[in-house]
């Protein structure tokens, strides 16, 4: 025997406003806050060539001592292009010595993989349960 059609409760205006605000709050808490407070930036590190040292002044200005185009790995053409872009060896060194850090520990990788796989499995299994209900109501009535 076919089941009765599901009748959802009616949601009032206040409930709708609360739901809309909850979505906004979730976006800002989970995504915007980590970004603004630098909790979710790129993993980078500074690698200085041999003979080059780096000093950071109180106002945040970074100075590289001993940096040359050659020890920064730049050939004559690259040097010309850097200069055409308005960079000198010191300002270019700030970019050239920044490298992504691809080192990772396996437990972090496994945790991330478990989160993603678990998330998709939950979605698929739970969706299928809901889907059966949808199909039953659509085609059995």
């Amino acid at each position: 025997m076919a089941k009765a059609k599901y009748q959802p409760p009616k949601q009032g205006v206040v409930g709708q406003i609360i739901d809309a605000l909850l979505v906004l709050i979730a976006v800002f808490l989970a995504l915007w806050v980590p970004l603004v407070f630098n909790l979710a930036g790129a993993s980078t590190r500074t690698i200085l060539p041999a003979g080059v040292t780096q000093e950071t002044a109180a106002d945040g200005t970074v100075t590289f001592t001993g940096a040359t185009w050659e020890n920064l790995g730049q050939n004559a053409t690259m040097q010309k292009q850097w200069e055409a872009l308005g960079y000198d060896v010191n300002s270019a060194a700030a970019l050239i010595t920044q490298w992504f850090d691809y080192s990772f520990n396996w437990s972090m990788l496994l945790l991330t993989a478990a989160v993603i796989i678990g998330y998709f499995l939950f979605l698929l299994v739970y969706s299928d349960k809901e889907y059966k209900e949808v199909i039953a109501e659509k085609f059995d009535r």
């Binding site: 979730a26 976006v27 989970a30 979710a40 790129a42 993993s43 991330t112 989160v115 993603i116």
Partner: peptide, 24 residues
């Protein structure tokens, strides 16, 4: 994405997990 932006990947997953729990 995990290489270099792993923390952001987890933040994004957390958002979708929270949203899914709210939906269910």
């Amino acid at each position: 994405v995990f290489l270099g932006f792993g923390a952001q990947l987890l933040a994004m997953m957390m958002f979708y997990i929270l949203a899914s729990i709210w939906f269910v």
